[in-house]
């Protein structure tokens, strides 16, 4: 990012820089618009317009009459609304704690204490389940959690779950979802965290070593603080994605033969509004809540993390 920062700083102070920045819009401006045009069309069509249209639907009723916050009040008062948000809160807390602790911990270990070949092999193996992200991961875990076929059936039975139905009890859902999310996603994050650690210059680590810091001390006081931004980045992305969870509980609901609530997550509730009740306005209102949540996360990352320095000398 340094090159961006330098560029950002120069023109403000420097008269020559200023002159070029005035000239450039004339020279590069039109070309710039042409280059971004295709993307901007897609952005308007599948980013801006749907957001605006959902907002419009959320503020009106099925006859197009303006209803103010009526739709929002209606969905919030729905008896399934708060429980759905409650469900994802429990899930998210578990998931994020586990993700941060284990992915950072594993990355530190993989970066520091072993032969490079072994480290590379392990990283690869941890990351492979990522290829099964989405529905495939859920299906695999349906098998893993069924004591009759699972390779760890003994463990599941020992934990007190005699059969598949017992495992899929609604109360277990957050844990099951965390297992699935961790299995399909954590390996990729470990690789990413490892990459972030790798970007720390060797001299820094060397200096810590010369100062007498052991591997743990180095990890805790030097390496982890140096990748703090990336840990925040991971946490916020995982949080934002977690709030939108849909596929996983939807499939578990099917597999549990209907015992798990069909409106476990907010997105499932929105789905139910749109597809079973045919209430697009209500569905839009729920999706606006979720959009705002997603936007808030993105806003925090973009403006506060310092990861996305947009050079700017307009």
């Amino acid at each position: 990012m340094t090159s961006l920062d330098i560029r950002g700083a120069a023109p403000a102070a420097d008269p020559i820089g200023r002159r070029t920045s005035v000239r450039r819009p004339a020279a590069g401006g039109l070309a710039g618009y042409l280059f971004v045009s295709g993307y901007v069309v897609l952005l308007l069509a599948f980013g801006v317009f749907p957001t605006g249209y959902a907002a419009y639907l959320a503020l009106t009723n099925d006859r197009g009459q303006f209803t103010g916050l009526g739709q929002f009040v209606k969905v919030v008062q729905d008896f399934r609304f708060l429980p759905a948000f409650g469900d994802i809160v429990v899930y998210l807390v578990l998931w994020l704690v586990l993700l941060v602790v284990l992915s950072v911990g594993a990355a530190v270990i993989l970066r520091g204490r072993m032969r490079p070949g072994l480290s590379a092999t392990l990283r690869f193996l941890f990351y492979v389940p990522g290829a099964l992200a989405g529905i495939a991961s859920v299906l695999v875990w349906l098998f893993m959690l069924d004591p009759s076929v699972s390779p760890v059936g003994w463990l599941i039975s020992a934990a007190g779950f005699g059969n598949f139905a017992a495992v899929l009890a609604p109360g277990n859902l957050p844990v099951i979802l965390v297992l699935i999310a961790f299995w399909a996603g954590a390996g990729g994050w470990m690789v990413v965290m490892y990459g972030a650690l790798n970007n720390i210059p060797d001299e820094v680590i060397e200096a810590a070593r010369i100062d007498g810091a052991g591997p743990w001390r180095t990890a805790w006081s030097v390496q982890i603080p140096m990748i703090k931004k990336w840990i925040a980045y991971m946490t916020i992305l995982a949080f934002a994605a977690g709030t939108q969870i849909f596929v996983e509980p939807q499939l578990l609901q099917t597999a549990s033969l209907g015992r798990v609530s069909p409106t476990w997550s907010p997105n499932q509730l929105a789905y139910l509004y749109a597809f079973q009740k045919g209430d697009f306005n209500g569905a839009a209102a729920i999706s606006i809540f979720l959009l705002v949540l997603g936007l808030a996360c993105a806003g925090v990352l973009v403006t506060r993390s310092g990861l996305f320095t947009v050079d700017d000398n307009e």
């Binding site: 697009f280 839009a284 806003g299 973009v302 947009v310």
Partner: peptide, 25 residues
């Protein structure tokens, strides 16, 4: 700069958040 900020925001926002609105559209 505006386009860049919007791009960053939409990129970080989970794509699932836009699915239902896109369906409605």
């Amino acid at each position: 700069k505006l386009l860049l900020m919007i791009t960053l925001t939409v990129m970080i926002m989970p794509s699932a958040a836009l699915v239902l609105p896109i369906f409605l559209e």
